[in-house]
Design a protein around this nucleic acid. Structure first.
Lengths: 232, 232
DNA sequence: CAGTGGTCTAGACCACCGC
DNA sequence: CGGTGGTCTAGACCACTGG
């Protein structure tokens, strides 16, 4: 039982729901006793999961299972201060949503095997201006609690909502950024002209166990797009 | 002398050139003896620098000082296989270079205080087609060995060349991606039309001590742009 | 084989948090 | 104050690399 095997065991606890989102895990000392290893070994195992974002450590307090990402990780792609504004008020509005059958392309990208998805259309605003038009797909057994929602019930930030309502913590995502000319529907939603330069971001989001739990495609004005990345 | 203080001390060794690029540092055991601490403490300090990319550890061999990034980290922004090609032959060609005085804007971005820079214009090709037009700025006391070069002397990959010729290891970079309409000079270099949608990537590259050592601005066809990123 | 880093132990003491 | 994670020790033994 090396520390990597212990890390796998702990992953299992999280995936199996024995260690629940936002809740504390046992102390390092008690885990060491339970597994019959030294505390240092437990610490190494926990460090692995903490690096992955699965567990959150805070000195003096218990280690807890992550409830996922919070920041407006999508809007970070766009320049906000178009008019020298300093304060920005990001908002979101769900336009419509319905149950749809699994799209073949999305199934291939995500590996989902479910029959139907929930599809949500949503606009995001900055200072009252629409800047991003999103189409979000959620696999349906898992997110069934959302199908009784009304558009107004959806919160501005989806990931914390997933955690609260559906017990799904998004801790990682893969984005694909590409350039295109704006299509009619996208242009209409964003109050722009068809054929205007556009950026499309396709995102697959992953939960605590590394399984894809959301597919999202977002379109915005390419001329307002600005992305920063670190390379290591 | 905690492990963080030790890490600082080790950073100093690297920055001061006492531990040189690509060379082995003393073993953990000998460092422990030298500093009068336990091996575990040395290991923690070294782990910090290894996470930063400053040191490279390999089981069974000595820990060495990093010589920097290698991959074509710039071309990763573009789709290569335009025609179902599988093998791609990236090439580069330096068009011209000269000593110029420090641009105010670049000085602000990089914090450079030198008087003059070396400016290099460079084209990058895939399958013989120009895809990227780069303008590279290097602070001049540090890179003076390059001013006697002829355009043909420059290697395809600049970062390994910096390490070999100037003793500068690039281990980190910050990229800023934005869209614009192609300017005349850029269009001409890339054999495209002025006003065509373009992507511009501005990069600041950092050496082992975290100081900016290169500023680079690259332009390419927006329609061929595709970027993948992980969000954590 | 000698030398390196990787894993693990069983303790000690420190630093932080909240009651 | 008690409980948590953070740092450190001084060893033991394992696993990998290269001559």
């Amino acid at each position: 039982m090396g520390y990597q095997a212990l890390a796998s065991a702990f992953r299992g606890k999280v995936e199996g729901g024995l260690w629940r989102i936002s809740e504390a895990i046992p102390s390092e000392a008690s885990l060491a006793k339970e597994y019959g290893v030294a505390v240092g070994t437990i610490r190494q195992a926990i460090a692995l999961l903490a690096d992955d974002g699965v567990l959150i450590k805070r000195h003096g307090k218990s280690t807890v299972v992550s409830s996922g990402l919070h920041g407006q990780s999508m809007l970070r792609f766009f320049r906000y201060q178009l008019d020298g504004q300093e304060q920005l008020i990001p908002q979101a509005k769900v336009l419509d949503f319905k149950e749809v059958s699994l799209d073949k392309e999305i199934g291939k990208l995500t590996g989902w095997a479910c029959k139907s998805l929930m599809r949500i259309h949503r606009l995001r605003f900055i200072d009252g201006r629409p800047v991003l038009y999103e189409t979000i797909y959620l696999p349906l057994p898992k997110f069934k609690k959302l199908i009784d929602y009304k558009p107004k019930d959806f919160e501005d930030l989806f990931y914390p909502m997933y955690a609260k309502v559906c017990g799904v913590a998004v801790i990682k995502a893969k984005d694909q950024v590409g350039f295109e000319l704006m299509k009619k529907v996208d242009a209409k939603a964003l109050l722009m002209k068809e054929g205007h330069p556009a950026v499309r971001v396709n995102r697959i989001a992953f939960d605590l166990s590394g399984k894809p739990v959301e597919y999202r495609s977002s379109v915005g004005d390419a001329m307002a797009f600005q992305y920063s990345a670190e390379v290591n």
